[in-house]
Amino acid sequence: MADALDLDVNERLLLVVEDDDAFARTLIRSFERRGYRVLRAADLAQVQQLLGSHTPGFAVVDLKLASGDSGLSCVQTLHAHSAAMLIVVLTGYASIATAVEAIKLGARHYLAKPANTDDIEAAFARAQGDAEVELTERTTSIKTLEWEHIHETLAATGFNISEAARRLGLHRRTLARKLEKQRVK
């Protein structure tokens, strides 16, 4: 059984689920300076292992993990472990589809990278939506729509480039080149 210290949300125990070592170290240092105790996992298996002995009050989850695990699976596992956990999803591959799914699975907020510690803490604090958020007049560009469609297809195929290329009607190498141009990590 986890000790009482780990179960106390007021202890500010944070789990960072991030496979990029440099970014994870930066986040961890920044949150530790703000008084959080920080645990780190790089994939779903490590998340499950940590949940065996800890119940964090907060989690920051990368959407796309190098292990092939989806951050959405991590969100689902974390929320099932503790519905009170405040979960923020970070991604360099933002799309409307994944944002909606992350919220449905229990995330508090969804932020596009680069996001800093201030942005993440503000997201933890936001319990309600903001009806006063400014609506932009800018229309979405064709390139943005193309990128969102590519990402949605990638997510639907479990990030299998060959299958996504087939569904998009592209050659696999063409899709790989497009992804390399849009790399945001």
Rank of each mutant, 00 (worst) to 15 (best):
A45C: 02
K181D: 12
H79N: 08
A66D: 13
A83D: 09
A99G: 15
L154N: 03
V133M: 10
A155T: 09
F159V: 08
L105I: 07
R25I: 13
K113W: 00
Q76G: 04
T117D: 08
R40A: 08
T55N: 11
L179R: 12
A127P: 03
V184R: 15
N160W: 00
R108N: 13
L111G: 09
R126M: 15
I161N: 09
V88I: 07
L111E: 10
G71H: 00
E146H: 02
T153F: 00
W147E: 09
T26R: 14
L39M: 14
A41F: 04
A107I: 04
R37T: 14
T140M: 14
D3W: 10
D3V: 02
Q48G: 13
N160D: 15
D118F: 04
L145S: 02
S73R: 06
E101F: 00
G169S: 05
A24F: 06
L154H: 01
T91N: 04
P114T: 02
A131T: 13
A123S: 13
T174N: 08
R33T: 08
F23R: 15
E137D: 10
K143H: 06
A2G: 08
I96M: 13
K178C: 01
A131H: 07
A122M: 12
K143N: 06
M1D: 13
F58A: 10
I96S: 07
I103S: 04
R138I: 04
